[in-house]
């Protein structure tokens, strides 16, 4: 269960505006990555995002580069989940692998605005916004297991017994 305040963005939010290329090859800890989150899309985001906030966006969120920092920086900024009608496939994987839930919500994202509150029930696969409740498909078990372990690296350590 996750309840949070919404940051709303449009279609095709790409990885360059989430995490600019000029930082991509500079070694950085996640906390520093968070300072650059959405820098070229919404310069006010990084300074005022609160832990538990939720990003709601249009289709094809995270298109572009394979840079994992695009997911890591949002996770480190405290974002609890990203909700969109569709995600680019590499971003989708990177988010799950960073332990950041991504929710493919076919309907309803256009009704949600910045500052609204939404409540997500991951087990039930429902998102509540004002008086409406929307359903989203459950993740396949292979993918859910990664998310539940907090991301790919902790998951693999568990599987390999190296943790």
């Amino acid at each position: 269960m996750s309840k949070g305040r919404v940051w709303k963005y449009g279609d095709d939010v790409n990885t360059d505006v989430i995490f600019p290329g000029k930082y991509t090859y500079q070694p950085m800890e996640p906390a520093e990555m968070a300072e650059h989150a959405l820098e070229d899309l919404d310069p006010g985001f990084a300074g005022s995002v609160k832990p538990g906030d939720i990003i709601v966006a249009g289709k094809n969120f995270g298109c572009g580069s394979s840079r994992e920092q695009a997911a890591t920086c949002l996770k480190a900024a405290g974002v609890a989940a990203i909700v969109a009608p569709s995600f680019s496939r590499i971003f989708f994987r990177n988010a799950i692998n960073s332990g950041l839930p991504v929710i493919e919500l076919a309907q309803g994202t256009d009704k949600i605005e910045t500052g609204d509150e939404v409540e997500i029930n991951f087990e039930a696969g429902t998102l509540r916004h004002k008086d409406s409740e929307y359903r989203f498909p459950a993740l396949p078990p292979e993918v859910l297991a990664i998310l539940e372990d907090g991301g790919l690296i902790p998951h693999v350590k568990k599987v390999l017994g190296t943790g």
Binding site: S66, I90, R93, N97, L152, I153, L160
Partner: peptide
């Protein structure tokens, strides 16, 4: 394409 963590896991497994 895949992400960096996935490549690290490919190194391992």
């Amino acid at each position: 394409g895949v992400g960096r963590s996935e490549m690290a896991v490919l190194y391992a497994t």
